[in-house]
Write a protein that binds this DNA or RNA. Structure first.
Length: 552
RNA sequence: GCACCCGUAGCUCAAUUGGAUAGAGCAUCUGACUACGAAUCAGAAGGUUAGAGGUUCGACUCCUCUCGGGUGCACCA
């Protein structure tokens, strides 16, 4: 709607000789009696114009010039708001637009010619995915979908490390279980991976090789096999939630030297040294964050000679700049909250435009079963598995529940609720609206021969003007704005809220307006309105990755 | 001790990022099926936005402090 109002208002400001650098905001008043849309430009500009806001608003109104039959009324209200009321014609024309654009309704072009990399999940292959990871995965997937709607070329990336100490321990854990399976007495350390899946992997190896590997002192084989099996299972779990990646970036590549004999990590050190942010003491190499006002320097290379995790992280982000992404989005859990400021600082020092980086951090998940809240814990491998949750409540509910709260809020996943088949369960409420429309259209085809694929009389929509119909039409018109808001905030939850209210408005319309029993033209008009609603529900569901059932 | 997130109706959460009378859903109460799906809808009730100051035309939102809950603070990732 900003595209519609902004030029008109700017023209009015110009012709009224009002000069301001304040942005023109278009907002939807909470209360409909303040109009369909409003702007606070007069309030913002009043001070620098040294004029009374209401009087300024009045002046602006006198210079407004809208296209014919779009705005029914404009008025000054409150302290100096300008409120706009749309005509029914405008609203119903927007509904026609929904039908004309179909699957592409809601798409925008601000990302045309730009690219975005969205990094999410990024779990190392040391064990099956936990519920907490699931939230970040779904969040990242939805954010990637949102970028795609605006024309961005999106790369969905998974960053992982299959070297390092954790993987070493994983290999040892598997080997020990294998030896145990071979009948040897073993001592399984508490520091090793306790989960049952370790035994399962050992069992698989035993099945293939019997006791032949018992004398083998090499860990490599166990590690490799464990990694393959675990990675396959991770991808299978993600696939169940329709989460797919285009690119798997192995941290390993940052350790291979280029023609100059240096690897990516070393190049970071040298570049930072050039900026005088590197120092050496206690046998280690440090990033001098004290120069940036922090309490302590941060280790980049440990005294053992190995890089700490921070260094490859910086090097990895540089590859994102080198790969020329116009937008760099990182999705991760609250446990990484201390990690990214240092990375950003380093990138800034090295001259990269960190404004292109956006961070989405999601808070943790607790599940409640029978009113009891259980805290998620990765430790014991006793529960908390994403797969178990999907088994329990299904993929649609899993996805929707993960994103139906703001990402900054701790998520309370009510397992009982997610399984419920009634209005209480937001998943069913949304999907029911869709199924109901499908059923209605089936019925319409049968009883009055309505066929949207051949019926071109969508201008009949202009016959509709009852409050329930206009309210529904207005909700449909709002959809493209909702996508933009959701994207700007990196918050798919906005979409969930929107779709919920759309379903609600549709049910009200359905309740109040007879469709098949109305006179023929009105019946068709209402069917078109229902069809448009179904289209928007579908488009929204696609972004959220939730299925749109024809019947339930 | 330091940093980040959160504190809003009995419960789970919103509030278009500084806008107008703080809104939904559960739960509670009252109504609507000889009906295109009642898996739904209409209505009632429910609040000192944790607390105290401050910034301004205007604060749930921004600043300071206090109190409570969560998370992270290694030469682990």
């Amino acid at each position: 709607m900003l595209e519609f109002f902004s030029p008109v208002i700017h023209n009015a400001l110009r012709s009224a000789a009002i000069i301001t650098d304040k942005p023109v905001n278009i907002q939807q008043p909470a209360d409909k009696k303040f109009g369909d849309f409003s702007t606070n430009i007069a309030l913002l500009a009043a001070k620098e114009c040294r004029r009374n806001p209401r009087e300024l608003a009045q002046t602006i109104i006198e210079h407004l010039c809208f296209p014919a039959d779009t705005i029914a009324k404009v008025e000054v209200a409150g302290a100096g708001f300008i409120n706009f009321y749309l005509t029914p014609h405008f609203i119903m024309q927007s509904v026609e637009q929904v039908l004309l654009e179909g699957d592409s309704y809601g798409q925008g072009s601000i990302g045309e010619g730009k690219s975005a990399v969205v990094e999410y999940v990024s779990a190392n292959p040391t064990g099956p995915l936990t519920i907490g990871r699931g939230r970040g995965g779904v969040l990242g997937d939805c954010i990637a979908n949102l970028f795609a709607t605006q024309g961005y070329a999106v790369t969905r990336e998974y960053y992982f490390n299959d070297a390092g100490r954790q993987m070493q321990i994983l290999g040892e854990s598997v080997k020990l279980r294998y030896l145990e399976r071979c009948g040897q007495a073993i001592d399984f350390p508490a520091t090793h991976y306790q989960g049952e899946y370790i035994g399962d992997i050992a069992e698989e190896i035993y099945r293939d090789h019997g006791t032949a590997l018992a004398e083998n002192t090499e860990l490599q084989m166990f590690k490799k096999r464990a990694e393959e099996i675990i990675f396959t299972s991770i991808r299978k779990t993600l696939e169940r939630l329709s989460i797919r990646h285009d690119s798997f970036f192995n941290e390993h590549t940052l350790y291979t030297p280029d023609e100059g004999g240096l690897n990516a990590n070393q190049r970071v050190i040298e570049a930072l040294r050039g900026k005088e942010f590197i120092t050496e003491y206690d046998g280690a190499t440090w990033f001098q964050t004290t120069k940036l006002g922090q309490e302590k320097d941060k280790v980049l290379i440990k005294s053992s000679g190995e890089p700490s995790y921070r260094l490859p992280d910086i090097a990895y982000h540089i590859t994102k700049f080198e790969r020329n992404f116009s937008m760099i989005v990182n999705v991760f859990g609250a446990d990484h909250i201390d990690e990214y400021p240092d990375v950003l600082e380093a990138l800034k020092i090295l001259g990269y435009d960190t404004g292109r980086i956006k961070i989405a951090i999601n808070q943790f998940v607790t599940t409640t079963v029978d009113g009891q809240t259980l805290k998620m814990s990765t430790r014991k491998g006793n529960a908390d598995l994403l797969d178990d949750l999907i088994d329990d409540v299904g993929a649609d509910a899993t996805r929707l529940f993960f994103i139906m709260r703001g990402k900054d809020s701790h998520l309370n996943f009510d397992v009982e609720l997610a399984k419920k088949q009634s209005k209480d369960n937001p998943v069913f409420y949304l999907q029911y609206a869709h199924a109901r429309i499908c059923s209605l259209l089936r019925m319409a085809h049968q009883e009055i021969g309505f066929d949207p694929s051949t019926d071109t009389m969508i201008h009949l929509l202009q016959r509709l003007n009852s409050p329930a119909e206009l309210q529904l039409g207005f909700a449909l018109l709002d959809y493209p704005d909702m996508i933009k808001t959701s994207l700007r905030m990196l918050e798919p939850q906005k979409m969930v809220e929107y779709l919920h209210s759309l379903a609600e408005v549709f049910h009200r319309f359905y309740q109040e307006c007879p469709i098949l029993k109305a006179e023929p033209d009105i019946a068709r008009a209402r069917l078109f309105l229902s069809l448009a609603t179904r289209q928007v529900l579908r488009n929204g569901f696609r972004i959220l990755g939730v299925s749109a059932p024809e019947s339930m």
